[in-house]
Amino acid sequence: MASIRGVSAKSFGLKDNKSALPYLLLAPGLVYLAVFFIYPIISLGQMSTKTSSGEIGQYKQSFRFANYVDAFLESKEQFSRSFIYATIATVLALAIAYPLAYAIAFKSGRWKNVLLVLIVAPFFTSFLLRTIAWKQILGEEGPVIKVLRGLHIISPQTTLTATSFAVVTGLAYNFLPFMTLPLYASLERIDPRTLEASGDLYANGFTTFRKVTLPLSMPGVVAGTLLTFIPAAGDYINAAILGSPSNKMLGNVIDARFFKIVDYPTAAALSFTLMAAILILVTVYIRKAGTEELV
């Protein structure tokens, strides 16, 4: 044993030192991941199969994997709602952010930096405060509803808050910069000469967009949709503040299971299921979108 070790140290010593350097550089990141990701994940996994030991908040390990099935069946409504809301919000955010990012990248001239600051500036305020602000804006005594009712666009009974409309628009608004900035980054990198070339080849504006701009901006689209969809699917603030009991998402269920019912195993099982579902969806999406630049 000793001689083997001696030989390997002698013959590979230099090489070992060399190859150790990247690992040393990686060490802080790996330690961070171990402490703040791997350990919590393991502890979450352990909690998810526990059962009650009789007293509130106290659980014993009994490897009950049926917790996952129970948790999913009890909350499947909020589960599907989370993905539906997050999908609509992502599409909405893309529809708003693409023209915005396009305009900033190609048409804004010297206003470019000002516009970028304008997009980011509201996000110096807390997420929570901005959502509460929307509740005030869309609320009964707020300006929007008064104008809409005044113009007879909506009936006096119709409300804007405590609806799925409010939750989805809240999600789209809150994650808009995460969509806009990656889109802007990839649009801005497009060489204008490729667009000119497209025109030289008799492509009209629409064809140029479809054949040149859009494909070249795909990394931005994929990054933006992921950065919007993932947090939106796990969000609970928008549903809690802008929704009603009929608009609750899975985040609200996990929150209530943890803090109100003190049912840690179900909360942990739901967290795991949500993570797995998002991971699968994202993997499929990235495979389909096929953006090598991104991964």
Partner: peptide, 16 residues
Amino acid sequence: EETKFQTAFQTAAGNA
């Protein structure tokens, strides 16, 4: 009871 009742209440409130 605490767990059962709180779960029923949270379910009614859309949280479970």
